[in-house]
Simulated scan of single mutants.
Amino acid sequence: MEQAGRESLLLLKGEKIVGTASCCASRTPELAGWGEIVSLYLLPEYWGNGWGKALLSAAVKQLESMG
């Protein structure tokens, strides 16, 4: 999951990984200064309960902290 210039987040329920998100500075030259959520995955059994929204929110906060 580690890649230079990319931040990866894990969503855990206890010790079980139930979701992941990855974000970085925009990879599109025309969007320099913007951020990009590269991926967001959530196990299907966790859909519809707010877990994905929480993961997306965490990814946006991570992008904000990156400037």
Rank of each mutant, 00 (worst) to 15 (best):
K16A: 15
R6H: 14
A58F: 05
E30L: 10
V18G: 08
G52K: 06
G33R: 01
A4F: 01
L12M: 15
L40R: 00
G50M: 09
E64K: 14
L9T: 05
S39I: 00
Q3G: 04
M1W: 01
N49T: 03
L43S: 08
Y46E: 14
G14L: 05
G5E: 06
A58Y: 03
M1P: 08
Y46S: 02
G50S: 07
G5Q: 06
I17S: 07
S22G: 10
V18Q: 09
Q62P: 00
L40K: 00
K61W: 09
P29C: 06
G67S: 11
G19W: 07
G5I: 03
P29L: 10
S65W: 02
V60M: 12
A32D: 08
E45D: 13
A58E: 10
G52D: 09
R6W: 03
L56F: 13
G19D: 11
Y46W: 15
K16R: 15
Q62T: 15
K53M: 06
G33K: 01
C24F: 00
L43H: 11
S26F: 10
S57F: 09
S57H: 09
L12R: 14
E30K: 03
Y46F: 15
S57K: 09
G5C: 05
M1Q: 09
A25G: 12
W51E: 14
A21Q: 05
T20H: 06
E2N: 13
I17R: 11
V60Q: 12
S26Q: 10
K61L: 12
G33C: 07
L40W: 01
K53F: 04
E30C: 04
R27D: 11
G50I: 08
L63S: 12
E64D: 14
P29S: 13
Y41V: 01
R6E: 15
G48P: 03
E64R: 14
E36F: 04
T28W: 14
R6I: 15
S8L: 07
P44N: 07
G35V: 02
C23V: 13
E30P: 01
A4P: 09
C24I: 01
K53P: 00
R27W: 02
A58D: 08
E45V: 02
I37Y: 03
G52C: 08
P29G: 04
G33S: 07
A54N: 09
S26I: 05
Y41F: 12
L12S: 08
E7F: 01
A59N: 05
S39C: 04
M1N: 11
E30V: 05
L12C: 14
G67E: 08
S65Y: 02
S39P: 00
E36W: 05
E7R: 10
G50H: 08
E64V: 10
S22R: 07
M66K: 13
M1R: 10
S57M: 03
G14E: 09
V18H: 07
W47G: 00
G19C: 09
E45H: 03
I17D: 09
K13R: 14
L42C: 05
P44K: 12
Q3P: 00
R27T: 12
V60E: 15
A32C: 06
L9Q: 08
